[in-house]
Design a protein around this nucleic acid. Structure first.
Lengths: 106, 106
DNA sequence: TGCGACTAGTACGTTACACGATATAGCGTC
DNA sequence: GACGCTATATCGTGTAACGTACTAGTCGCA
């Protein structure tokens, strides 16, 4: 299925995952719940686990030991750095954009 | 070519374009320059014009009359609404994420 | 103790779209 | 009149976003 992007998204799955893990280690299913709770974005399993694999591959998250049912992941130091960087860029961008829209206090 | 997403992006072309237009109407090439200037993200022509077409199709931007060399676009009211909504979500997300990372003042 | 609901992850197929390359063309200038 | 910049269009490719379907463990609960 397509990315349901007829309506302009604002955050990529990879970033949502990193941000969720900033809270502490979580396994996949818990990330789905967490992300949905605080962004209303529902990641499908296909999206999630594929994104996690890529993040692991590029060293931004690392697998922890878990039982055979749960596979927890944690942010690596590099993952934290990347997340911090991206969030700052987002914050700056949002601030500038909102002020351009004439939003008070932005 | 792939989306150069080995390094986790934070903003989608469509949103960058909307934000750039929040400043006032611009034509494509000017958007490229503008976006690059304030995000360091360089949109290729393929990315840009394709994204603009989609945005126009979904009624978030509208073409203005220009000469035959320049095709300026403006934000529609719906485009403004969508942009405002996404930017607020981004700002909230960034704030929460940064505070999770223990960034002071977030 | 068998059923449903929830948890957890796998596997897969489709397709949107990010991206660079390439092409075209007007304009200034040197 | 060649070079560099502005400006847009188009095409091909690969990645990854996304939903669906599936498997399997666990926990009531009746």
């Amino acid at each position: 299925m397509p990315r349901q992007r007829d309506r302009v998204g604002w955050a990529e799955p990879a970033l949502l995952i990193l941000a969720s893990l900033a809270d502490g280690p979580k396994h996949g299913y818990a990330i789905i719940k967490d992300v949905e709770e605080d962004t209303s974005i529902r990641l499908g399993p296909g999206t999630l686990y594929a994104a996690i694999s890529r993040l692991e591959e590029s060293g931004l998250v690392a697998a922890l030991e878990g039982d055979e049912r749960r596979r927890p992941y944690r942010l690596t130091t590099e993952g934290e750095t990347v997340l911090d960087d991206r969030l700052r860029a987002m914050a700056r961008f949002a601030r500038v954009g909102l002020s351009r829209l004439g939003v008070a206090g932005a």
